[in-house]
Design a protein around this nucleic acid. Sequence first.
DNA 1: CTCCAGGGATCAG
DNA 2: CTGATCCATGGA
Length: 304
Amino acid sequence: MHIYEENEDLLVLEVEDFLLSQTLECGQCFHYKKLEEEDYALVSGSRYLHVSQTGSSLRFHGINREEYLTYWEHYFDLQKNYREIKDRLLEKDNTLAESIEELWGMRILNQDFFETMISFIISQNQQIPRIRQIIENICERFGTPCENGLYTFPSASCMIKGGEAAIRECKAGFRSAYIIDACERFQRGELLAALQPESDYESCMSVLKTVKGIGDKVANCIVLFALDKRNAFPVDVWIKRVMETLYFQREATIPEIQKRALEQFGDLGGYAQQYLFFTGIRNGIGKNVEKVSKSEKKRDNLRK
DNA sequence: CTCCAGGGATCAG
DNA sequence: CTGATCCATGGA
C-alpha cells in the first residue's frame, strides 16, 4: 500500500481487504451520501470528504498527504491488517466464515467521538433509515453546508443554543432531552476521561453510561466505532436474534449473549459483531422463528 | 388496528 | 437483582 498526490487528490494504491460500500453501509455510520458505485461523499464531525474506489485504488478528492495521514487513514482503519484479524477470528470460530466472506471489505471506522455519541443516542429504538433522517435534520438545522448537499455535524454549543424544542423539531422524539444532556456533559469536559487513548474499555464504558440515554448497547457502539475499543460487543435486537439462532438455538438474555460473545470472540468481539450484524440484516435471520409474540406475552401476564 | 425499530429510564416485585 | 411499562414517531 503506497500513496501519492495527483492533481489536488491523494491516491492510495494496493489497498487490501477494503471496500468503500461495505465499510460505509454496514450500519456503523449514518452520515454519508452515495454518489456513484464506490463513490461517496461523507462528513466526519466538521470534516467533509469525497472518496472513490476503483479496484484496489482509493482516491481522496482534494485531500493532501498531511490530511490523509493525520485523519483519514485512521478514520478508515487502514493501518490495521484485516487479513490477520479475519484469520484469527476464523481460527476461533468457523461459524463466521460465511459472514466474513460476504463482508470481506468491511473495516471498522474510527469516527468522531461527539458525532458518534449523539448518533447512537438517536439510534435507540429506531430503524436505520430513520436514524439517518434525524441526523440529517439536525445537521441541516445546526451544521454548516459542505458540498453535495451535506452539512457538517454541529458542535455541542450550537445544539445547546438551539435547545431541546429545536432538537424535537428534528424528530428526535423522547431522545431530545438525552441529546441536550449529552451535549452539556461533553461541553463541560466531563467525558474527557473516556477520550484518553490509554483509557481501557471498562473505564470508557463507565464514564459514558453516566450520560442519560446511554446504556450498555449505545455505550458499546460509541467505544467500538469512535474509540477503537475492538473488544466491545454491542447487543441489539439483530445481534440478539443472530446469536440465538447460531449459538443458542433458543431465546437468550442479553447478559447470556455478552458472556458467550466474550468466550467465543475474546478481544475481537467488535469485528465479529459487525460481521454478524450485517448478515443478520441481509438475511433477516431470526425474524421468522416461531416464538411467543410480545402481545401474546402481554395477554398472558394480564391473566395473572 | 397492531407491531416493530442498532434501547434506556423508571418503577414494581 | 430481574422483569414490565412507557417513551416519540413512522412504516409495514
